[in-house]
Computed example of a mutant assay.
Amino acid sequence: MANIGVIGSKGAMGEALRDVIEASGHDYAGGADKGDDVSKLADVSDVLVDFSAPGALESNLHAAVGAGIPIVIGTTGLGDKHHAAIDQAARAIPVLQTGNTSLGVTLLAHLVREAAKRLDSDWDIEILEMHHRRKVDAPSGTALLLGEAAAEGRGIVLADNSERGRDGNTGARSDGAIGFASLRGGTVAGEHSVILAGDEERITLSHSAENRAIFARGAVRAAEWLRGRDEGRYTMDQVLGL
């Protein structure tokens, strides 16, 4: 049993989290949203789950550090300064940050990493994702997570080997690049495919999210796992023992 506080409680993920927390036998410690004092929520929580916005991350980390409790970060659209803040907080508390809390996506990323490791650069890697019309960032955090997994498997740096937003006379595809394409429309919770295209053969690894509850269940699983850990930065791979 744990008291789990939710940051970003008024969003779609916040509502899904409350349902899953209560259904799993944990206590919903309360929620915080834009303009709320997160430190008050942290003081009555055993662990925080953050699905808010990048601009709120540093203050949310400060609240978790001040209360000495773990935090699970599922917020997407993070940049270098956000990851630096996470690294700093992880010196004092357990922090788990991920682009996707789904257990299925976590396993998919593992499979992508293994496939990229075993197939040479003659196999082109393309990542296709689709989300609902209201999603504001692209590529999705999950697409980037999968891209990082592919890059790790290849032993390359994703930022130096990615192609995005192709339009017009772009020229031939760069050797060894990891391509991204983003689609937006309707109410799609999340569709991701990683295509490994070789000469005269193709492998597609994919995941379909049918409901946001899968992300909430994974986040609660991560919160359960994170409680009692030493300070440090953790991943969903560790939650699944990969």
Rank of each mutant, 00 (worst) to 15 (best):
E15M: 14
R233Y: 12
G68I: 02
K135L: 13
D199N: 05
N161W: 06
A151F: 11
G66M: 08
G8C: 12
G5A: 02
G8R: 11
M13V: 02
L103G: 03
H26V: 02
L96E: 00
V105K: 03
E200T: 13
R154D: 07
G186D: 05
G25F: 08
A209G: 14
L61S: 11
L41C: 08
G147L: 12
K40D: 04
R133C: 10
V194C: 05
A150V: 00
K117N: 13
T98F: 02
E126A: 15
S39T: 12
D122M: 01
L17Y: 00
A32L: 00
L240N: 03
G176W: 01
H131M: 13
H26N: 06
R173K: 10
T98N: 04
N3V: 02
K10A: 12
G241F: 09
A143V: 11
A42R: 00
L242A: 08
V20I: 11
A23R: 13
S102E: 06
G74V: 03
S162M: 14
I203E: 00
A109N: 13
L205I: 06
L196T: 01
A172T: 14
I93P: 02
E210W: 10
F51M: 05
V38T: 01
F51V: 11
N211F: 08
D167N: 12
R184I: 12
G198V: 06
D160Y: 15
V6L: 04
L17C: 06
G241S: 10
D124G: 09
A197C: 05
G228I: 10
G155A: 15
P94M: 12
V112P: 07
A67V: 11
G25L: 08
A67S: 10
R91A: 15
I4H: 09
E224W: 10
G232Y: 09
H62Y: 08
L48W: 04
G11E: 06
V157I: 10
A67Q: 04
H26D: 03
M13D: 03
L128Y: 10
A109C: 14
I93C: 10
N211Y: 10
V157S: 15
S45P: 04
S206P: 05
E152H: 04
L119T: 07
A197M: 04
G99D: 12
Y28G: 01
G79Y: 14
T204C: 01
G66A: 09
T101E: 03
D50I: 10
A64Q: 07
I4D: 09
A197F: 02
G55S: 13
L41N: 07
I73R: 03
D37C: 01
G11V: 02
D175S: 13
I156G: 00
A92P: 03
G14M: 00
S206W: 01
V65T: 09
S193P: 03
R221M: 00
V6S: 05
S182A: 11
H132T: 05
L226T: 00
G179R: 15
V188D: 04
A138D: 15
S52G: 08
R217C: 04
A138V: 12
A151E: 08
G31K: 04
H132R: 12
V49K: 02
G228S: 10
A213E: 13
G35F: 00
S39P: 07
G190S: 07
G104R: 14
E200L: 12
I195W: 01
G66P: 10
T101I: 01
K135G: 09
G228R: 08
I4T: 10
R133V: 13
D137E: 14
K10T: 13
A150F: 01
A181Y: 09
L205K: 02
